[in-house]
């Protein structure tokens, strides 16, 4: 375990060292490739003056609301498309089609509908999350071995009981991977939306990134990108990893 941590740490140290050496070699202009030290300086000052913390709060709040709405609507719809042929032919086809639409394509529509408001951002996040979540839930429920529901039915389980006690838990591994994918999509959609949509109700990380470009402040651009990556990793490790570990113990599924 310690060896693995050391190896991972060494890898990232080497990566930063290579970056540092590339800057020292003056191959590219420092405006295009700032040194890791100036990026660290930016992050430090942004943490100290509170901009980073504030932007992170704004972004994460939007993300949680949008993602939450996506799950709240997507999960039941996915269950519906999996259980009724009519829903599969209507909502299912719609979801399949819209899932292929990159979420940034919703931004122009959201701007025209909602103007430069929070609602526009939330709309883009929900659209980015919802369809893939419906597809994942539908797939998960369909992949359940029919023997589980037959065994439950033979013991007298019916209707809602079968759904809550058999179908949902049996589909849990698939639901989780669907939720993980939904989370990644929500994160992408929100960043796209924040970069394109300037609104006055709160500056998120996407806005910081955008202004970094406007000001030609490459240290800010790279610094904010790093923060975005770190938040993504942290969510994966704190939110999803424990559930995955539980599934691994119970189901005995291989996890890598």
């Amino acid at each position: 375990m310690i060896a693995r941590w050391l190896a991972a740490g060494l890898f990232f140290v080497l990566l930063v060292a290579a970056w540092y050496l590339a800057v020292k070699a003056h191959i590219w202009s420092p405006i295009l490739l700032p040194s890791p030290i100036s990026v660290a300086d930016y992050v430090k000052s942004a943490v100290e003056d509170g901009t980073l913390w504030e932007a992170t709060q704004v972004t994460v709040r939007r993300l949680l609301i949008g993602y939450g709405l996506g799950i709240l609507v997507g999960l039941p719809l996915g269950l519906l498309t999996a259980s009724s042929r009519w829903c599969q032919d209507t909502i299912g086809v719609l979801a399949l089609g819209l899932q292929t639409l990159p979420s940034v394509c919703w931004v122009p529509l959201a701007l025209l509908w909602f103007g430069q408001t929070e609602a526009a951002l939330l709309f883009v996040v929900v659209m980015g999350t919802l369809w893939s979540l419906i597809i994942a839930t539908d797939h998960g429920v369909r992949t359940i071995p029919p023997i589980y529901t037959r065994a439950a039915r033979s013991m007298g389980s019916t209707g809602l009981h079968t759904w809550t006690h058999v179908v949902l838990p049996a589909a849990l591994p698939f639901l989780l991977s669907g939720m993980k994918q939904g989370w990644a999509f929500a994160w992408r959609s929100l960043m796209a939306a924040e970069i394109y949509v300037t609104i006055l109700t709160g500056f998120g990380l996407g806005h910081l990134l955008h202004y970094g470009r406007e000001l030609n402040a490459m240290d800010q651009v790279i610094g904010v990108m790093l923060i975005i990556v770190v938040i993504g990793l942290a969510v994966d490790k704190t939110l999803f990893a424990p559930i995955e570990q539980f599934l691994h113990r119970r189901w005995g599924t291989a996890r890598q």
């Binding site: 071995p145 023997i147 013991m155 119970r250």
Partner: peptide
């Protein structure tokens, strides 16, 4: 519940 089935395949619930 008066007639219960024991199946051929593994029908135990892994959760």
């Amino acid at each position: 519940p008066h007639r219960l089935v024991m199946f051929q395949e593994a029908s135990l619930f892994p959760w």
